[in-house]
């Protein structure tokens, strides 16, 4: 494929994202309202702030596409940070620490994935349990104390290359890599198949359990990466890190068009979802809004995302028709009811 064609396809794919328009309108409105909003420094600020959320949300997209959910994201983020700051890794070269933390992330994701696939207990319940387990384990490691991060571990959140901050490079890598994995690999197609109709995928002989566990493992890996980025920025590990983060991550994913019922979604949408949330947050500070308004806006965005997802589900149901999405009725039940005399 020619480069020009690729660019055109990419632009067309972007144009198919209604959230792109929302983001552009939001940026335009804020830039017009507040003169100092439209500055390179501020856009850089937004990009950096959106990076950890983008990375974690790309991972969560894989899980949600399989019709699963991972409520342990915030606790995984904390446990990964706790491992990073633990005495056991003190003085260890940064590369080895990062490798250990990402491996731990994969391990945490696999615990979720294997528990979901092996027990058939709903992912909501499994990850609600691991939410407690991971946060407890993190508290055990840190002793619930605030721990200052070693200087050599902060570069991943504060350094820059070619003028672009490291978190933005990582988020871009996660988004591009995640997008390619999703759209150009067999694994990506299996993910959609499993999420669309799990039983059909099983009957077609797809490795449903391995694909599902893989999705959770990837989510764990990317959550650990998000944790490294965020703690690098913060410079410290605190017990409250990641509390309630799962709600923000799921909002970004659902806002980006991924169906909570599985089978449909896109990484581009998720990235846009994270950018819209972060831009709105920045806009609130610029507007000088009352602190109470922040919570209202956050809740409203989640409500809009869920309503939009529900409407899309109804549209899909109408488009596909009753034979696929409604339980099959017996031949006799399809007969017209007898007239009453």
């Amino acid at each position: 494929m020619k480069p020009a064609t690729r660019v055109r396809d990419a632009l067309l794919a972007g144009a198919r994202q209604p959230l792109l328009l929302v983001l552009l309108v939001l940026l335009l409105a804020l830039s017009v309202s507040y003169g100092d909003f439209a500055s390179t420094a501020n856009f850089r600020n937004i990009a950096v702030q959106a990076s950890p959320l983008t990375i974690a949300a790309v991972g969560a997209t894989y899980v949600i596409i399989t019709a699963g959910i991972d409520l342990s994201v915030g606790s995984m983020l904390f446990l990964a940070a706790a491992i990073e700051s633990s005495h056991a890794l003190a003085g260890v070269p940064a590369g080895l620490v990062f490798l250990t933390v990402t491996a731990a992330g994969v391990g945490m994701g696999l615990v979720n994935g294997i528990a979901v696939t092996a027990t058939r207990v709903p992912a909501l319940v499994v990850t609600l349990a691991t939410l407690q387990v991971f946060r407890g384990a993190g508290g055990h490691i840190t002793g619930q104390q605030n721990i200052t991060l070693a200087a050599n571990l902060r570069g991943i959140g504060t350094a820059a290359a070619l003028g672009v901050p490291a978190p933005v490079w990582l988020a871009a890598g996660a988004a591009v890599g995640g997008g390619l994995l999703f759209s150009r690999t067999v694994f990506g197609r299996y993910l959609q198949a499993v999420g669309s109709h799990r039983d059909a995928a099983v009957h077609a002989g797809l490795p449903v359990r391995r694909v599902t566990a893989g999705a959770y493992a990837l989510a764990g890996l990317l959550t650990a990466l998000a944790s490294l980025t965020q703690t690098g920025r913060l410079g410290a590990v605190q017990p409250s890190i990641g509390q309630g983060y799962e709600l923000t991550v799921v909002t970004a994913v659902v806002l980006g068009g991924t169906s909570l019922f599985g089978g449909r979604g896109s990484i581009t949408g998720t990235v846009l979802g994270a950018l819209v949330l972060t831009t709105a947050q920045t806009g609130l500070v610029f507007s000088g809004a009352s602190p109470y308004v922040f919570d209202i806006v956050r809740g409203a965005v989640l409500l809009v995302a869920v309503l939009a997802a529900a409407m899309r589900w109804r549209d899909l149901a109408r488009a596909v028709g009753p034979t696929v999405l409604r339980p099959a009725r017996s031949r006799s039940s399809r007969r017209k009811p007898a007239k009453k005399w």
Binding site: Y34, D36, F37, S39, A41, N42, N45, Q49, P52, Q230, R233, L234, A236, Q238, S240, I241, Q243, G244, T278, Q281, T282, V285, F286
Partner: peptide, 16 residues
């Protein structure tokens, strides 16, 4: 009481 929100909020306020 979230350190991440404190970081982002302070950065945004310093920008504004």
């Amino acid at each position: 009481w979230d350190p991440s929100q404190a970081l982002d909020g302070t950065s945004n306020a310093l920008q504004k």
